[in-house]
C-alpha cells in the first residue's frame, strides 16, 4: 500500500466510525422510544390489524379517526346486521391514505369498508396528517409496509424529526423527574388496552365526561384542493378493492350541532361535491350526525357512552337502508 494512501484511508475509517457512532446512539434512542410506546394508544393499531386479519368475512370494516373509535358499538352492529365488525378507528392524524392502505391487504370478497372521516380529513391541508402518524409507526415500524404512495414517505420524513425529538425530550424529562427511562403509561383513557375485541374504545365508559365541548367550526382553505385530494384517495382505493370483491361506502362523523351559519353552508356544499364526485355511496348527510353537546366525552368527535348508543343506531339505520337498496 503506498504511503500517500494512508491518511485517506484513515479519514475514510474515521468517517465510517463517526457514522456508526451517530447511528448507534440514534438507534438506541429510537429503540428506547419504541419500547416506551408499546403501551401507548397508537400501539393499539398493531392489535387492530390482528383483529382485522383474524376476523371472518363478510365483515363491516369501519375506517376513520377517533370518531370511529369512540362512536360505534361494534357488537350491536354485528348483532343487528349479521356481519362481523372490525373497528379500525384510532386517530384522524394518521391520514386517510394510510388508514386505507393498512386495511387493503386484508380485504376479501363480501367485505364492506365504511369510511367515517373527521371533517379535518376531508378539508384540512396536508391531508390532516399529524404526529399520530409517526407515533403509530414508532410503536410498530412494520406499519411502513402499508405505505403505497410517495406522499406518505414525504410526510414521514417531514414529521419524523418533530415526533422523535419530542419523544427524546419526554424521555429525558421522565428520567430526571421520575427516575425512570421506561416509565409506565399513566394515561387514563388513551392507552393500548383501552379497546374491546372489536376495536371500540371502552376505557372511558366508567369515567365522567371531562369537559364542555366546543362548537364545530369549519372553513375551506384558499381553494377546495384538499377536498379533491380526499375524493381522489377514496375513489382510487374503491377502484382497487373492487377487484377483490369488497365494497365501500361513506358516512358522516358525529359532531355537536353547529350553530354557525357558515359552517352549515360549508357542510352542505361539501356534501354536494362529495355526492357528485365520489364513486362510492354517501349514506345520510352531515346534520343527521349532529348531537347534543352533552353526548360528547372530552373532544369534538369523541362521543360518550350515551352518544355512542345513539350514533350506533343512526349508523345501523343508514347501512340497513343501503343493504336493502
Amino acid at each position: 500500500m503506498p504511503a500517500s494512501n494512508t491518511p485517506r484511508r484513515l479519514k475514510f475509517r474515521s468517517l465510517i466510525f463517526l457514522v456508526l457512532i451517530f447511528l448507534s446512539i440514534n438507534l438506541s434512542a429510537f429503540y428506547l422510544i419504541h419500547v416506551r410506546y408499546q403501551d401507548s394508544y397508537y400501539a393499539a393499531m398493531i392489535d387492530k390489524i390482528n383483529i382485522l386479519e383474524s376476523t371472518d368475512s363478510p365483515r363491516l370494516i369501519f375506517v376513520g379517526g377517533s370518531n370511529v373509535a369512540f362512536g360505534i358499538d361494534s357488537k350491536l352492529i354485528s348483532q343487528q346486521t349479521g356481519y362481523s365488525v372490525v373497528n379500525m378507528g384510532l386517530n384522524g392524524n394518521l391520514g386517510m391514505r394510510f388508514m386505507l392502505g393498512m386495511i387493503e391487504p386484508y380485504l376479501r370478497s363480501g367485505d364492506v369498508v365504511l369510511v367515517i372521516p373527521e371533517y379535518d380529513l376531508i378539508l384540512n391541508t396536508n391531508e390532516s396528517i399529524g404526529p399520530a402518524f409517526i407515533q403509530a409507526i414508532i410503536a410498530n415500524p412494520n406499519l411502513l409496509q402499508y405505505f403505497n404512495s410517495p406522499q406518505e414517505y414525504y410526510y414521514f420524513l417531514k414529521l419524523f424529526p418533530y415526533v422523535y425529538t419530542q419523544a427524546i425530550k419526554t424521555m429525558v424529562s421522565d428520567s430526571i423527574e421520575k427516575g425512570c427511562i421506561l416509565c409506565e403509561n399513566e394515561e387514563q383513557i388513551y392507552f393500548r388496552s383501552a379497546f374491546n375485541p372489536y376495536g371500540d374504545i371502552i376505557s372511558h365508559e366508567k369515567i365522567h365526561p371531562i369537559w364542555e365541548i366546543g362548537h364545530l367550526y369549519l372553513s375551506f382553505a384558499q381553494d377546495d384542493s384538499n377536498l379533491h385530494t380526499y375524493i381522489d384517495i377514496v375513489n382510487q382505493f374503491s377502484e382497487r378493492i373492487a377487484e377483490s370483491g369488497a365494497k365501500m361506502v361513506m358516512l358522516y362523523p358525529a359532531t355537536p350541532a353547529s350553530g354557525d351559519q357558515k359552517t352549515q353552508e360549508m357542510l352542505s356544499l361539501m356534501d354536494e361535491i362529495l355526492r357528485a364526485e365520489l364513486t362510492i355511496p354517501v349514506l345520510g348527510n352531515p346534520d343527521q350526525a349532529w348531537y347534543s353537546r352533552s353526548l360528547f366525552f372530552d373532544k369534538l368527535y369523541h362521543l360518550s357512552v350515551d352518544g355512542r348508543a345513539l350514533n350506533t343506531q343512526r349508523i345501523i339505520d343508514q347501512i340497513s337502508e343501503y343493504f336493502i337498496e
Binding site: 451517530f22 446512539i25 440514534n26 434512542a29 399529524g130 404526529p131 417531514k158 414529521l159 424529526p161 418533530y162 422523535y164 425529538t165 427524546i168
Partner: peptide, 13 residues
C-alpha cells in the same frame, strides 16, 4: 453537531 440536530432540534410542524 449531528447528534444535537438529530436529537435536540425543535421541529415544530
Amino acid at each position: 453537531i449531528l447528534l444535537s440536530i438529530s436529537m435536540l432540534g425543535v421541529y415544530q410542524p
